[in-house]
Design a protein around this nucleic acid. Structure first.
Lengths: 161, 161
DNA sequence: CTCAACTTGTTCCATTTGGAACAATGTGGC
DNA sequence: GCCACATTGTTCCAAATGGAACAAGTTGAG
């Protein structure tokens, strides 16, 4: 089944993207949209979780203990979004929260088994779309992209929010 | 003035990003956030334009004539967002609209001189943040990233919305 | 020609989003 | 010890967002 060509009124989106004045940002943003937005929609449709919520689970699946603030910084999302997500994930039993004995302001968040199961489900959903988009790359492309993105992510994490 | 290290409670965001299970998507999304979100905020603060609005201008700066639908596809944004943007940009005198004589449903959008001036201003604002983030890359990184992103963008433009 | 199916642009509405202010707690200079 | 200042998590609220339904227009099969 042939794919409909990405043309509209003679506008070729791919060609357009290759002529934008900004260096990489627009193209990167476009590709990100193509991966993240449909993945986000699929996760929401299939699990009911919204972005801040599954990001919280993904973070807690990587690090055993985090504060809400940690998650906010790791995901570059505002604190109040994470705060809401924490409450909903607590209600669902996907995470636990315990006051930090050494700092009364913050709470230590951990993922539950139920939460870990949901996180695995979410990652599987996200991986489908991701694989579709990155299927265009060969081994060298993958390696190069990986190298550059690691460098960029490390650098960007030091920049102001 | 030294930059505060990107650490919080022992969580190194850069290291975290390099351990995420998803292949490229999360890192790419993170870097995109680091470029696009602050750029978006800066544009909004300095010009009052929101995302759909300046994307519309950027598109029209590249292609002399577009329909609202073209812009929606090029930017992967819903049509109603573009519709709103068109009305506001018309009110501001940044674009013109003329009915398409060959198809009564659609309208031909073009950018005005005033719009082009604003678009240049927006691109300058966006470039500042972009340069900051991509400053971490050397010439080979740039070339590799460019090559891979072009490939990805071309491929993604053929995928479903 | 006719009618069903489709496309464009729009409005309506519920949800998501994030800035700002806030209380509670911790920190550091003196 | 005390007090100004910073930090965490929260609530409130206005704005942005995107799905759904819609009218107007176009297309194509028969």
């Amino acid at each position: 089944m042939a794919k409909k060509p990405p043309q509209t009124n003679g506008i070729d989106v791919g060609a357009f993207l290759n002529s934008v004045g900004l260096q990489h940002a627009y193209r990167m943003s476009y590709v990100t949209s193509a991966v993240v937005a449909p993945g986000y929609d699929a996760v929401k449709r299939e699990t009911g979780l919204i972005r801040g919520e599954y990001l919280l689970l993904l973070c807690l699946a990587q690090e055993p203990v985090l504060t809400a603030q940690d998650v906010a910084r790791m995901t570059r999302r505002p604190r109040n979004s994470i705060s809401r997500a924490v409450h909903r994930m607590l209600d669902e039993g996907y995470i636990d929260r315990a006051p930090d004995p050494s700092d009364g302001r913050q709470a230590r968040l951990t993922i539950t088994d139920k939460g870990r199961a949901m996180q695995a489900r979410v990652e599987a959903i996200l991986a489908v779309r991701e694989d579709e988009v990155f299927a265009a790359l060969n081994a060298k492309d993958h390696a190069d992209l990986d190298r550059v993105l690691r460098k960029l992510a490390a650098h960007a994490s030091g920049l102001a929010t």
